[in-house]
Every structure is written in C-alpha cells, then in structure tokens.
Design a protein around this nucleic acid. Structure first.
Lengths: 126, 126, 126, 126
DNA sequence: GTGGTCTAGACCACC
DNA sequence: GTGGTCTAGACCACG
C-alpha cells in the first residue's frame, strides 16, 4: 500500500492517513483481515513521527475499521461496522450536496460531474 | 437567508458560514448583487461572536465572492471569479473521490449515488 | 471536581481519569452540560502532561460523554448516548460475574457483597 | 475446562487465562488438587504461543493458587492463600464501585443490579 | 485562553 | 519485533 501525505495540507496528517486507508478499503485495494504496516514502519516511510500514525490507527480502530493486537500488529476488520441506515443516508446526502455546490460554483455542468464519478468508479474497481 | 451552525462540528464556525453562503450562491438562493446581512446582525441571529462572522465575510471577500463597501454593507459580487481550471478540476475530483469512498464503505451502490445526485440537482434548480 | 491519580497503578493514567469522570457522572456529582476544567488546568492540578489529560477527554468524547468546542472548552453532554440494550446487558453481566468471582475467591459471602453495594449506592446518591 | 480468549481484548491474553481459571475456582468448576492441562496442550487448544500460557501459570503459582511439580504437571492448590483482609476489601470495593457506575450510566436501576447478581450467584452454586 | 496537531524520544508490556 | 503509555515542549487555529 502506497500512501502520500502532504504536511502543508489543511487536513491534519493523521486524517490524511485515515482517509487514504478508508479509500483503499472502499476501493478494494485492502482486503478484510489484511495486516497493515506497523505504525513505526509507516512513520519511517512517510517521514513523520510514529505517534502521528498511531493516532490515525487509533481512530480507525475506534470506528471499527481496524483491529489491533498487542505485540502482533494491526489488521483490517473482517466485518465492517453496520452504520445506521438513516444516519448513513443523511451523511451521504450532505457529501453529495457539497459536491454539487462546488461543481455549480466552478461552472462545471451536472453531466460532467456524473462523467467524473463514472471515471473514478472504474478506477476504484481495479 | 437561513443559516445553521453547529459549534461542536469539526469544521470551524467561520468556515461553516462560508460554506453555507457558497452553497446558497451555487443553489441560486442568493443572486449576484444581493445584499448580505451585516456581520453584527448575522452574529446576533446565530448567537456567536461578531468577529467570527466578520472572518467569514473577510475570507469570502478575499476569494472575490462578496464585495464590502464601507458604510453600506456587504454584497454578493456581480461577476464570480474565474477559478484556475486545473485546480478546479483537481478539487472536484477529490470531493468526488471522497463521496464514492463513503458510499462504497456504507454499502450504497454506485447507481444509488447517481440517483441521489439527480434528486439533489433537481432540488437546486428550483 | 477533585480527581486523584496514582501513577504507579496498573491502569494507565488517562484511563484513571476517564473512570473517575465516568463515576462522577454516574454518581450525579457532574451534571449534564457542565463545563470541565481545561485539559491544561487539569494537567497542572494532577501534575501530569497535558496530552495525557487530553487523551482521556478525547476518548470520552468519542464515547459521546463529553462535547468539545474549539476555543471554548469541554462540556458534559446534555444527552448521554443510548447503548444497545443487548450489549449493555451483556457487559453488565460480565462485570457482575467478575465481582462475584472475586468475592468468592476472597471468601467474602454473597450477603456481604450486597451490603457493600448498598453502602456504595447510598454514597453515590449524595 | 473450556477457556475462551479474545486476542483483541484490551486485557492481555495471559491475564484472560488467569481470570478464567480464577473464576472457575471461585465457581467451583475446578476443585482443589485437580490437575490442569499442560501449558503446551492448553496453548494448542487456544491457538496461542505456549509462552503465553506459561506466563499465566507462573503468575498463578506466584499467587499460590496453583502448584507446579517438575515432570508431573500443574495442580490446583489444596489450600488457597489468605489474602490481606484490608487489601481484599479495598479491591472488592473498587470492583463494586465500577459495577454500579456502569449500571447507573446505562440507566439500569440498582434493584436490577441486585437481581442480576442473585441470578448469577445461583448459577455459580450449581 | 481554548483546543488541535506534531515532534522526538523514552520506557514498558506483550507475543 | 509489536503495540501502549507518557513526557516536555513547540506551533497553529479558533473565539
């Protein structure tokens, strides 16, 4: 798994890590049960402090996406957490709303947004 | 214009205000040239510090979305700024990526996402 | 609110803090909406690193017991999170099981355990 | 004797083993003088490292709950050690405190806790 | 003044 | 080797 972080991004580093792992799961590039790199290794690879990676792992664990075993390592959950359907729908609507606002403000027509999504979707299935 | 802010949201209050104004523009609920409430009035309405509203207005002005005239008030720009096409595309792709990841993780199929967007789009055109 | 921590306890300091706050809520010594001391102040009071207190607050926030607002402080939630009844019952049974095992092994008769609980219960209602 | 361990529990595996053996003694499912499975056999059964089981046995031996005879195996003590009454009382009070806090936070009334204990107690006497 | 993030490094417990 | 905790201190963003 190859992660890229940008220290000068507005988003905190630990959240960038979280997002990329979440995206990798969603895109099927990480499979359930798979072992993640140790937080120390990943820290070396990304040239950041180990605690920063650990914080990302900790939050993912609290969300139920990964499981950590002392002395063994961190692993992707076998079963992902069930989300309240109502809340899920609500959140998705928010995100969709935001996407369309941004597109409209940038002058990108609705059709192009759908095309863009199609394109990304195909990339994620790879 | 009715705004809703959530002080315990991760997003800073001033950014919540910015987003909602931007969304209102994108959705056509605010029209070019229209006058915005004074930052003091809006602060009273939202029960927050006036400085916080002012910061939101300041940033929007810097982005060229609103124009402030001393002694008269703040107004929506008549002409919205051209955004760097490459950057615009990049940002939109990020937002789209995030939307699809979220959907995939929640188990919402791609088709439903497109349906959701369709639905929202129709609401915004109203 | 007076907290006492024991650095040489087996339980991590941040968990000792969590437990004591949870106990204070359960015992009604902290009321919904009440502001907690800033994590820096509490750190000074307990003579530990601020990050350690912050970690306790962070975990409590993720559990929905407290709410944090940037620049304002941390507050007890107005509404405590609803726990899955099944899971709640399960956990309580575990804890009860452990208590009785411990008592039996120490040779404390069942009646005395109930007396002890009575006594503590009265203390918590104060 | 059937043990169940959970590698992703916060409690170390060796302590999980200790607790379950202690609980089995307290509940009368293990009788004084009885032979325990060899640490290797138990390790195979639980699919964990033999060293981990050995550590549990070692600690139990140090506490005087089991006796190990070289070449013969490990056995439950015939006489359980006397625990410092003050310390015993202190520990029990802690556990009871925690139980009541948990119940109060979950909205379980005191009477139900006592009922739950009654129920378990009857199960243990079996 | 508040919380939010990050660092560099230490020490421990576990497997 | 792994994760778990804690420190002391820095810098930033927010209200």
């Amino acid at each position: 798994m190859q992660l890229h972080i940008n220290p000068s991004d507005e988003l905190p580093i630990y959240r960038q890590i979280m997002h990329q792992i979440i995206d990798a799961i969603a895109g099927g590039r990480l499979t359930p049960g798979e072992q993640l790199p140790s937080h120390r290794d990943l820290a070396v690879q990304l040239v950041i402090a180990p605690l920063t990676v650990k914080k990302a792992y900790d939050e993912l664990e609290q969300q139920g996406l990964i499981v950590t075993q002392r002395g063994r390592g961190s692993f992707l959950s076998e079963t992902f957490p069930a989300v309240e359907p109502a809340q899920r729908r609500e959140r998705l609507r928010d995100a969709a709303q935001r996407l369309l606002s941004q597109a409209a403000l940038s002058g990108v027509p609705f059709e192009e947004v759908v095309n863009l999504l199609d394109e990304i979707q195909k990339g994620m299935e790879r």
